[in-house]
Structure formats: C-alpha cells, structure tokens
C-alpha cells in the first residue's frame, strides 16, 4: 500500500512541478497565453481543464484497452480520442447547464475552449504511451491539470504587473508576454530533482 501511495505521489508531484505541462512540455500554450489576463479567468479555466482531463482519461483509457487493443486498432487512438474529447466537452456542458446551473454559470464559458486545448489530447495519449494503469493515469491527469492551473495562476499575476510596465515598442504584446513566460518557466527549473529528493528516486 505504501508503495502504491508513494508512486502516486511521485506521479502527481512530477505532473505539477517538475514536468509542468505548460512550462516544460509546452502543451496548452494557447489558453495559457490567451486566458491568463485575469486571476478569475485563470482559475475557472484551470479548474475546468483539470475536470475534463480527469473525465477524458476515465473515458479514453477503458476504450483503448477494451475496444481498440482487442481489435488490433491501436493506431486509431488519435482519431478516437479527439472525438471522445469533443463529445465529452459537449456532454459536460449540457449536463451542467441542465442539472447544476450554478456550476455551469461559473465554469460553462470555459468549456468550449477545451476541445482545441492540446493539453487534454496530450495527457490522454501520454497515459497510453507511458503504460500507466488506470489509477496512475487518473492521478497523472489530475496532476497535469493542477500543474496547468498553477501555471495559469502564477502567470496571471505576472501579467497584471506587466500591464503597468513600459515596454520597448517592438516587444509590445506577444513578444514581452513570451519573454515573461520564459522567466516563469525558468523558475520551475528549480524544482528539478525535487521529487527524487523527497522520495529517494523512483
């Protein structure tokens, strides 16, 4: 039991800190640069992405192992997964609107953004590539989502400051945002080795 808990913690912390999805794997850059202007927007988007990542993994994992593998159709995973995610986002949106209107009001606007978020497709494909079991896949997805949330929140703070700065004309807009992202990303390099240090290696 201790071993399982330990390996889960390693996967979780790796996803959040050392292999942060946005800042070291470059997945989900568009929403990271697009929606991170306000803290509330970052929070809503981050929570919605985490939920959809976990749900999408819960749906794609069994489909891959109980449907595609027995039929020998593993190579169709990209097509199937993107369809599942698109369908899933629609479904979650409809269910929330009908049954939990308060939650829909808070998160609903962020849901359509998620279909084209490469982090969601990325995490479902990575889970298969890494050969994780079902529990590990779920933990990895949640870790990736939380990592995305943290990166968004930190960056929204940085951008708040950036708005008030005077920037060289050629760097205005996207270039300075990218340079700021570079420095935020550099700070996450500091977490390298943290997981190994805490748990004494994998």
């Amino acid at each position: 039991m201790g071993d399982i808990a330990k390996s889960m913690m390693i996967i979780l912390l790796t996803g959040i800190l050392t292999d942060n999805f946005v800042l070291s794997k470059f997945l989900g850059i568009c929403p990271f640069l697009g929606v991170s202007k306000t803290t509330s927007g970052s929070l809503g988007m981050g929570v919605a992405v985490t939920a959809v990542m976990a749900l999408a993994t819960a749906a794609t994992y069994p489909l891959y192992y109980f449907f595609l593998v027995p039929m020998g159709l593993e190579y169709l995973n990209t097509i199937l997964f993107i369809l599942i995610i698109a369908l899933f986002v629609q479904l979650v949106e409809m269910i929330l609107r009908k049954y939990v209107p308060s939650l829909y009001k808070a998160l609903g606007v962020y849901l359509p953004l998620i279909t084209t978020n490469c982090a969601v497709l990325g995490v479902t494909l990575l889970n298969i590539d890494e050969g994780y079991n079902f529990g590990e896949s779920l933990v990895n997805s949640i870790g990736a989502g939380l990592g995305f949330l943290i990166a968004m929140l930190i960056f929204s703070g940085v951008r708040g400051r950036l708005e008030k700065c005077r920037v060289p004309k050629t760097f205005e807009g996207m270039p300075i945002t990218l340079v700021a992202a570079s420095i935020v990303s550099l700070s996450f390099v500091g977490f390298g080795g943290l997981v190994d240090g805490l748990f004494g290696g994998v």
Partner: peptide
Amino acid sequence: PAGGFFVLGCLIALVNKIANRQP
C-alpha cells in the same frame, strides 16, 4: 523550455521591427 519562450519572443519582436509593423 525557458529558452524556447525567450527565442520565440525575440524572433517575433524582430519580425515586428523589420516589418515596421504596429504590433
């Protein structure tokens, strides 16, 4: 990864400069 963000930011700024484009 940090270098990736940095180089892309600088390249876009350079393109803005050369094209003399209002970003």
